[in-house]
Amino acid sequence: MLRIDRATYDAIVAHAREDHPDEACGVVAGPEGSDRPERFLPMLNAARSPTFYEFDSGDLLRLYRDMDDRDEEPVVVYHSHTATEAFPSRTDVSYASEPNAHYVLVSTRHHGERTGLEGDDVEFRSFRIVDGQVTEEDVEVVESYLFGHSPTTVVYD
């Protein structure tokens, strides 16, 4: 199961809406082994494409070095599908290489723009992808992880 705080959930959805119709992507880092997605790190989709996403190789190196320095790992790896359902594609599965990560898929296919009307939702689902096997998991949204702390810092690259 993925437990994620409300602010981070909303930030992922907002990023997906903002980049629609291109795919949005990013990571939520957390302390190694904690399984707590704490630090929201939206990334640039270097492919700038409605059907593909990839982290720029320089960005990727800086991201992993930064996480390494903080003893963090990618707890959530997220990206959006902008015309199809929020389910890992064959390409997603072939690239998935963080066995400990929650792969979050959001779909903006129906709701790229915030309409304010009923049903104005972005689909948000989470998966484990290990050795090519996809397993969907529940998503629990909690109000805050950082009890007694200020809300999650949102860092834009």
Binding site: E23, Y53, F55, S57, L61, Y64, H79, P88, T91, D92
Partner: peptide, 11 residues
Amino acid sequence: VTILPAVAGGC
């Protein structure tokens, strides 16, 4: 030398 998994995918 640093080896990293590419983070990529697509629908």
